[in-house]
């Protein structure tokens, strides 16, 4: 796609998927220096790199594999032009935030990808299928650590308040308008319902309660922080990277 042409709806939807994975990947690769243990830190970085790789695949599909266009899309767009869900930008290395965000994101994204893979777009289906071998690990990691963390009797004190604001925010991942070009709204909303049912059951089993309504807004500042970081070097060292 060259500058000046109108972006197709399909490209815009792919970019929305890419932006979600970029946001999640940026946060994970950044906080992996400051997580709870060396073992966890190593895994956080792997998963962050995976998500960045997935974002690159989606951007490449939107921009016909044009490397420069991909980097411009990431490094030259204003924060407000990104189409990631609010929860994707949550940027906090405290375990309760990282754990709940990642659990919700990964489980929701799995259902979302499933809905996309069932569509008519064979290129997209193949792309999403190739991501599975990495995503299986991500799901196992966050579900395994959620269960392990919840064995600690202080867990609910830390995790419940986060869930209270994050649960509803996660539903933006299934925004029908944003992804209409890739998946039928009814299919996407069915995926959202399956996700909610499964995740709620799992959380309840671990002693956490899915809130009826959001206890408050998600903390802000994540998007701004990511933008500040990715824009840090260019003004210092302008040029083609």
């Amino acid at each position: 796609m060259s500058a000046g042409t109108e972006m197709s709806d399909r490209a815009a939807a792919l970019i929305a998927l890419a932006d979600d994975d970029f946001a999640v990947g940026h946060v994970l690769t950044s906080v992996s220096g400051f997580g709870p243990s060396l073992e966890i830190n190593v895994a956080l970085s792997s998963m962050g790199q995976d998500e960045l790789g997935h974002s690159r695949a989606y951007y490449a599909a939107a921009f016909d594999d044009d490397r420069d266009a991909i980097n411009r899309a990431i490094y030259e767009r204003a924060g407000s032009d990104f189409r990631a869900a609010g929860i994707s930008w949550l940027y906090d290395h405290a375990w309760e935030w990282l754990l709940i965000k990642s659990y919700l994101f990964e489980t929701a994204d799995a259902h979302r990808r499933g809905a996309i893979a069932r569509g008519n777009d064979s290129v997209l289906t193949e792309m999403v299928t190739r991501m599975e071998s990495e995503e299986v690990y991500h799901l196992d990691f966050w579900r395994g650590w959620l269960a392990t963390t919840c064995e600690n009797d202080q867990a609910a004190d830390h995790l419940q308040p986060v869930l209270d604001v994050a649960w509803h925010a996660a539903q933006e991942l299934f925004d029908a308008d944003r992804f209409a070009a890739l998946v039928e709204p009814s299919v996407l909303s069915a995926a959202a319902e399956s996700w909610k049912e499964e995740a709620a059951a799992e959380l309840n089993q671990l002693g956490l309660v899915v809130p009826d309504k959001a206890a408050g807004a998600l903390p802000t500042g994540g998007l701004e922080r990511v933008m500040d970081e990715i824009h840090a070097v260019q003004p210092m060292a302008p040029g083609r990277w």
Partner: peptide, 26 residues
């Protein structure tokens, strides 16, 4: 390194530098 991973100026640089920094943690 992790103060700089977020600031890598291209997606390739970011992924490569993240992988390198991860190795050091390992």
């Amino acid at each position: 390194e992790f103060w700089w991973v977020p600031k890598a100026p291209s997606l390739e640089a970011k992924m490569i530098f993240a992988a390198k920094s991860q190795d050091e943690v390992g």
